[in-house]
Amino acid sequence: MLEAEKDQLKNEILHLAGAYNNHRSGLLPVLLHIQQKYRYISRYAMQEIADIFRIHPVEVYGVVSFYSFLSTEKKGKFIIYLCQTISCDMAGKRAVARQLENELNIKFGETTPDGLFTLKYTNCLGACDKGPALLVNEDLYTKVTPEGVFDIIQSYRAKFGAHVTMEI
């Protein structure tokens, strides 16, 4: 990371933590913010966050590793969380999962080489009556069909202004 980027990140963390008087109760909101903006929480970020909250970096690491929406590795711009829990499973999650992997040419847990998409399983999204359900960043999709997967992915490609046709 460049020094300038580091400084920017640090100032950002200072600002965010300031809203919580640097009290540890602000830790999760700050982490979520950094996660959303940078798509991961870097070692440097964890260390700076620890410093500001007056705790140890390893404690921040412990927290980050605990929650499934936080990560220490860079995720795609769009994270697709497919619900793997029972109702969605019974409603046809497996076919959707297969199609997601085929469309993006990656496996669950991986990120596309262009850094656009990450595939992840998650547990119940609270849309069990309309499974299979998936979440793309903050957007909820229900009754997803294998055919529909393509459209969902395309709409995000378009949003990002990337080539609409698939490479590879």
């Binding site: 140890h56 970096p57 390893v58 404690e59 690491y61 412990g62 590793s65 605990f66």
Partner: peptide, 13 residues
């Protein structure tokens, strides 16, 4: 963490 205030070890995952 508590006794020594150093904070090397923590549980993860």
């Amino acid at each position: 963490i508590d006794l020594q205030e150093v904070g090397v070890l923590e549980a993860i995952n």
